[in-house]
């Protein structure tokens, strides 16, 4: 017994150790389970698959889109809640970048840099990218945000628990928590208007047709024409979000 004892305890040690290592291996092997990575896939072939195009060369920064969005969707009026907003980028001669969006651009823009200091300046309307591999959908713990079969990312406000994880996960800052409802809120691509054959409010109210949307699966759609005839880019392509909001003339300064 005395001779065996050290052996026994060493065996125990290895037994314990190997179980621990095994447990960790199993636990880590389970985590990156492939099918769980992305919430949705684009439909194969049939069905609508919405995409959005914004032409920065055409945007005059009137803020009509941001204003229309608030009015159409009853978004809280305070300047902390936007489903759609406009930013002005001013690149100065010294290379520094100034970004402004007073009240999301709703009240118009005032040029804050004198002309002679400006290298170039442009407006960038922002809205939900309706990503195909939405980080926000991926992280929602209860399935209260999702992608419709048409590729529109929606929030189920009757099911959302208000954990704000999706707000953290959105790289584009397109989500917020409605202060009255306590649930997440975001652009719906005005699905309630699409449903009645109308355009989303921001598209409808744009005076220069700087924004268009359409079915990416339809070769003859406006959006495909736009994508074919312009050099388009998404914001933060490195994040591989499958963004379906394509900008023409997007400068690398835009983030």
């Amino acid at each position: 017994m005395n001779i065996n004892k050290p052996n026994l305890s060493r065996r125990d040690f290895f037994k314990a150790g190997s179980i621990i290592v095994g447990g960790i291996t199993v636990a880590t092997a389970l985590t990156p389970f492939d099918g769980l990575l992305f919430a949705t896939e684009p439909p194969k072939g049939k069905g609508k698959w919405y995409g959005i195009g914004i032409d920065i060369n055409k945007c005059i920064g009137c803020g009509n889109c941001a204003k229309a969005c608030k009015l159409e969707n009853n978004v809280p009026k305070d300047p902390f809640y936007f489903r759609s907003w406009v930013e002005q980028y001013t690149i100065k001669n010294d290379g520094s970048v100034l970004v402004e969006s007073p009240n999301g651009g709703i009240d118009g823009f005032k040029q804050s840099v004198p002309d002679e200091e400006i290298f170039k300046s442009f407006f960038v309307p922002k809205m939900c990218n309706h990503c195909a591999k939405s980080p926000c959908v991926q992280v929602c713990p209860v399935g209260a945000t999702f992608e419709t079969p048409e590729g529109i990312v929606l929030v189920d406000e009757n099911y959302c628990i208000g954990c704000r994880y999706c707000v953290q996960a959105c790289p584009y800052g397109c989500r917020f928590i409605n202060p009255e409802k306590g649930t997440a809120e975001k652009c719906t691509l005005c699905i309630h208007r699409l449903d009645k054959g109308m355009q989303p409010a921001c598209f409808e109210m744009c005076p220069t047709e700087a924004r268009i949307f359409g079915d990416l699966n339809d070769p003859g759609s406006k959006i495909n024409y736009f994508l074919k005839n312009h050099t388009c880019m998404v914001i933060k392509p490195n994040l591989n979000t499958g963004s379906k909001l394509f900008y023409n003339a997007l400068s690398p300064e835009v983030r």
Partner: peptide, 15 residues
Amino acid sequence: AVCHQLNAARVKIVF
């Protein structure tokens, strides 16, 4: 002025 205010980002825009 929301649309027509002089602004460097706006001057060259062909609508």
